[in-house]
Amino acid sequence: MLLIDCPCCGLRPETEFRCGGQAHVARPATPADVTDKDWSEYLFVRENPRGVHAERWIHQHGCGRWFNALRDTVSDRFVETYPMGGDPKSTTTETRL
């Protein structure tokens, strides 16, 4: 069970959280203008990297806030967590664990 650093509440066990998959997948501002192909990419295609991954979590059974995290998908270690809408302090390439 992971130990997750919620930006609002601090370190809490994983069972209080829900993972929302890849972070920074922005919804197109005007979906009507997007091609079928690009729309399917938005809906379905994910980075799924072996290494540091930017992903979304919500502290479901805590403050109820969504936030972002960088986590290494090989070691499962968190590099950092940061508020929704923000950018990470580390970059995914240099933080590979």
Partner: peptide
């Protein structure tokens, strides 16, 4: 488990 991982290991819960 609920998150992407290549660790071949999951949580006890």
């Amino acid at each position: 488990d609920q998150y992407v991982s290549y660790s071949q290991q999951g949580g006890l819960h």
